[in-house]
Design a binder for these strands. Structure first.
Lengths: 195, 195, 195, 195
DNA sequence: AATGAATGAGGATTCATTCAT
DNA sequence: GATGAATGAATCCTCATTCAT
């Protein structure tokens, strides 16, 4: 029962299925057939719409980052001052949309893909840069010249805990990770005069 | 000309070749044939010694962790007090033996493998536990009850920067990462009275 | 905006596109989608009009032969005597309409297709017969009983040089080929008394 | 039951099977699986030994030309004078080893492949050059300055009749083709003084 | 101990063809 | 009349793994 205007629907379904399948398989060894089946179509159609496996992955990567970016932006809008904006940034990464097993697996996937694929590498570096700059912008008024290093540290801590907790056997809900990073933020802000 | 006692030599060669190949390929898609060729033997022999591809990977993983563990232990021996021991732990992860492209790629590999393979997961959790406990043990006398969380934060920061810097396009030498973590350590220690 | 009476236009466009595509690809591996796109329509429509890929090929074959046949007939009309008619036949095959890379590739295509497809084989044998009979009819008054063999030879030489020169890397314009065949014709005519 | 030194045997079997399969199918659409099955092995092994489908085709092409070349050389050795050498060259192409349906189909295959594949094109041009030079060398002492064109004509006639008769529905044995070319040779030699 | 030989299973990709709109 | 949607079937190729020697 072919309908018109299916393309965006199919693409979205494939992207969603890709992330789900990576989450379920727990590794990169997902086949186009698996993804397509999960998205309710033939693998041929998946190729028709995306051109190839890597492009499907890239689309999933883009989607994941878009979701993350939207979450961050949304949270930033409602935060009145730098400190609460920093907290919002920290919370966004561990929110329910981003800190789910499938999404975590997808991120890991992308880290790997970024080592081989130029587009993936570019996408990942965009994420890196954006997180860094978001932190930096809001740290500057609070810690002045130490902002750059503080941003680097907070970014590293966010990514590190995301992986450490996300990949650990007992899946947590991200709350403890958020708490840890927030304390680090406190330390950075308090350490202002000390160093 | 088959010789006696070749087994350990062959196994070591395969482990080394595995890490090198993962580093060169930049991804997990390395074949047994590639590894075996690099190690100077037939793929059949690789199977003969290890039984299968996953076991070769696991052996490489074990080796990587052993090297890391030895580096940490060695550094700890020469450090007289808790603070210098903490610094030694931090430095070990970014030392020349561990912070090389191949080894970084191997670690990423292991993260992924750990999502599928029980043994790999166990191995990885051992690493996690060991790093946490090493930090904890030396933080306790310095920050008392806050040691647990400080250890978690430092561990997360180490892993996060390892990935962030290790996977970034412009390969650094680890020095800046070490400096960042050391500063975090200072903050944790200075933050003692504050919180 | 579908119009009435589009069928002949669409069919002609597809035939033309088929030959062009075979010429461009340089091989038989042209897809219906390529042809249809080149003809400015969907592949579904191409099927609608022709029924299938082979029939598209056959139509292109028929067209090629029709063009060739028309060229020969036209040339024959203007030739007053047997000898000049023979020369006209020879020239026709290497004229600008037939001796172009695309058309040569199409012919080769048809040779191959004729091994599998009955209709193609019939079509090809019609070409063979027509060339032979055209030559024979005009040779008979000139060389008498030797006409049959002379016709066979001239036909073989035409086809052979068409392939040899047409497929050679350095595309020629067919003039040298024509000259060679014309000399052969002279030899056949001169050899009259000799044998 | 794996044995040692199978490679040359396997390769030869695949080459033979390729030609046979092309002959049977009558077209280029032969699959590696078909070839491999006919040669008594898995398609994987065929890939292992040749690397890919095109290389299998090329090997078959090379073999076909080698056989042809050997036939020509052998015939030349036993011919005492230029004229009989020319006759030997003509006969070789239509001998039982070369003028069989499979081999003819293979040649047609090569013509097509040569339009796409560099190596095939080179191989084909070697054949062209060799035939031309063989004819030329032996025509020179007989027809002097007209040798070049005579060689071109005879080469064209050989190829043309090979295709025309080889591809015609009623498979002939090549005798009539040889007779036709030999008469052309006579005409060329007799035409000496005439033109 | 060591390897060339061999394959089965699977995976990405392509394509002619069909169908509802 | 025309097309986007959709797929089954096929094809090339890869690879881990096994086995006889």
């Amino acid at each position: 029962m072919p309908k018109l205007g299916m393309e965006p629907i199919r693409r979205a379904a494939l992207v969603k299925a890709t992330i789900a399948q990576i989450g379920e398989t727990g590794s990169l060894d997902v086949t186009v057939a698996q993804i397509a089946k999960r998205a309710g179509m033939s693998s041929a159609l998946a190729h028709h719409y995306f051109g190839g496996k890597e492009q499907i992955f890239l689309a999933a990567m883009r989607h994941t980052m878009t979701v993350y970016g939207a979450e961050v932006r949304g949270a930033l809008l409602m935060a009145p001052d730098p400190e609460s904006r920093l907290q919002a940034i920290i919370r966004a990464g561990f929110g329910p949309a981003n800190f789910r097993p499938e999404v975590i697996a997808a991120w890991l996937n992308f880290y790997v893909l970024a080592r081989t694929n130029k587009d993936a590498a570019r996408l990942l570096s965009i994420y890196h840069a954006r997180l860094r700059s978001n932190l930096l912008f809001n740290l500057r008024p609070l810690v002045g010249p130490r902002a750059r290093e503080a941003a680097e540290r907070l970014a590293g801590l966010i990514d590190g805990l995301y992986l450490r907790e996300g990949l650990s056997a007992d899946a947590r809900d991200g709350k403890s990770a958020v708490a840890l990073v927030l304390q680090s933020l406190d330390l950075e802000l308090a350490g202002q005069g000390a160093t």
